[in-house]
Every structure is written in structure tokens, then in C-alpha cells.
Write a protein that binds this DNA or RNA. Structure first.
Lengths: 156, 156
DNA sequence: CAGCATCCCTTCTGATACTG
DNA sequence: CAGTATCAGAAGGGATGCTG
């Protein structure tokens, strides 16, 4: 396996600041702050299956290899898992993520061509966050719904 | 018909699944997966200042009270910090977050009216993720840029 | 199967002008 | 100061038809 160790030598300074409009990290934040990006990362990260995110896995310091069920998925698999995604958006988002180095696209010249997508190390590092993001949404859904309900009642 | 219904009486109830198009958590994920939402949460969470997110704070288990510099901010403060945001988007996003119970809006009837925004507990819980999201974007910016560059070169 | 191309509608987003 | 209201362009997103 490719054991790519992040070669950080000077993590001290803040080269990028997403608060600044012109900063490239602002654009990157815009790209990863996307419904489909989050779900695709979750899919390739192995958060699929029953759909729910296990509580125990979220502490991050579990058994490595178990939490990272990062498997390659075919295009149609992803499309099936991400209910409601259009072919256009899926392809578009996958290509963007490929360009940014978050996932790899592998074409196997079988009879009907087979295309698989898999997370890179970079993608896996982001997947830890997207998984939690999805988990947060599912966990706090009730609280949000309750607050919305009581907000829409301005009756004195 | 609707046959696949995961009604398994699991101990940890998986009521919501963002992979499903009709699930409310999908909409919630869509809302929080937003550039401005992330930045507003970061702003109110106290990630401002020099702009950089400290490395040491990210483990999450630091000294509480220090990492949560969640302070109330005025409208103009937020607008100034989030460079490039239009007042329309800012107001719109703030109201949405208020409805969802992620932040509070306080109007003080001073001479020129003063409006302050502050995170709720719910908002703070999400802020932990948005902070890491922003941090990820700023930290991995170089890797992404490098990969983009080599992607746009077919390298025969 | 895994796309790409096209049409078309909706939403987002920024800019401008105007109040309490 | 902290909005609201409106306009117009840009981007998001879906539906359909067509390839290798």
C-alpha cells in the first residue's frame, strides 16, 4: 500500500484563510461544502449499508481497517446509493473530486466498460469530516425540526 | 411497492438516512453543507482573529472554555469578517440558521438598532465540524492545487 | 454500463436602491 | 446600523436523447 506520510515541516503559519474572499481555500471550502460531495465521500468511505452511522465508530480512534471500509464503487453503485442524484450532477461532482485528488477513477475495458471510483488518502482524510457531518445531520434532525416548528408559530 | 424499509428494531435507531432523497436529514445536510453556513459558524465560534485554526485545538478534547470562544457578534462584524458575502446572503443564511435553532438573534433597541448573533448549544456542536472543515481546506490547499495542476496536463 | 450533449427551469448570488 | 425589496446574471440541477 502507499503509505504516504504527510510531510509537514512548517505547519505554523496560516498561509490560507477561508475568511478571505480571494483565498483559494475559500473556493475549496465552497467545493467540499456540498451535499453531493459529502454523500459521495460517505459512500466511498463505506458509510453505506444500513444507512445509519454507527455511534461507536465516530470517536475516530477505533480499530483502523474497520472504520475505513473505503472500497471502490462502480458508477452505478454510487448512483443507486445516492438516491435522487442526477447523472449529470454525479458525473460532474465525481470529475471535480478526481481533479482535486480526492478520489481516483479507474476504467476497466470490459465488454460493457466498468468504471470504479475509490478514495485517495486525501479523500479519506476529508471523509472523516463528511462522515461526521452526515452523522450530525441525522442525529440532530429532531432538534432542528422541533425548533423549526416552534419558530413558525409567531402567535403572541 | 415500498418493500425495502429498514424497520429493524436496532438499538441505535436509524431514523434518518441522508442517503435517501426524501429523508429530512438530506435537506438538513444540504443546508449545513454550505460555504456561508460554515464560515458563519466559524465566525461565531471564535475562529476569527488571525484566520488560522490552531493545530492544537483540533483534537477536540482540549480545555473547554478556551476553544469555545463563542462570542456574540454584530451583523456588521460578521459581514466584515466574511469578506465577499452580500448582505442578502448573510441575512438570508443567518435567518435560516436561526430558524433551525443553531444561533440566536438578539435585537437591542439602541439609537441605531444593534443586532447580535450568537451560537446556541446546537450550533456549537456543529461548529466543531465546520471549524475542522475550514481547517481541512486551509491545510490541504496545497495538495489539492498540486493535484489540479498535474491533472490538467495529459502528460503523454 | 457509464457516460456526454442539449434544453430548460429553478435557485443562488451579487449589485443597487430604499427604510426604521 | 441592519436590514428589506428588486433586478439580472450565473450557477445548480433535472429530463431527455444519443454513444462506445
Amino acid at each position: 500500500m502507499t503509505t504516504t506520510k504527510p510531510v509537514r515541516q512548517a505547519p505554523t503559519k496560516a498561509e490560507y484563510d477561508a475568511f478571505l474572499a480571494a483565498c483559494p481555500s475559500r473556493q475549496l471550502l465552497d467545493r467540499i461544502s456540498n451535499k453531493w460531495v459529502v454523500l459521495i465521500l460517505c459512500a466511498l468511505g463505506g458509510d453505506a449499508g444500513d444507512g445509519a452511522v454507527e455511534e461507536g465508530r465516530l470517536d475516530g480512534s477505533g480499530r483502523p481497517g474497520e472504520i475505513d471500509t473505503a472500497r471502490a464503487m462502480r458508477y452505478s453503485e454510487i448512483a443507486r446509493l445516492l438516491a435522487g442524484v442526477s447523472q449529470k450532477m454525479l458525473t460532474q461532482t465525481l470529475r471535480a473530486l478526481e481533479r482535486d485528488g480526492l478520489l481516483t477513477r479507474t476504467v476497466t475495458p470490459t465488454v460493457p466498460v466498468t468504471v470504479t471510483y475509490a478514495l485517495t488518502d486525501l479523500g479519506r482524510s476529508l471523509h472523516r469530516l463528511t462522515r461526521e457531518l452526515r452523522h450530525w445531520a441525522q442525529t440532530h434532525m429532531d432538534e432542528v425540526l422541533a425548533h423549526r416548528r416552534q419558530s413558525e408559530t409567531p402567535t403572541t
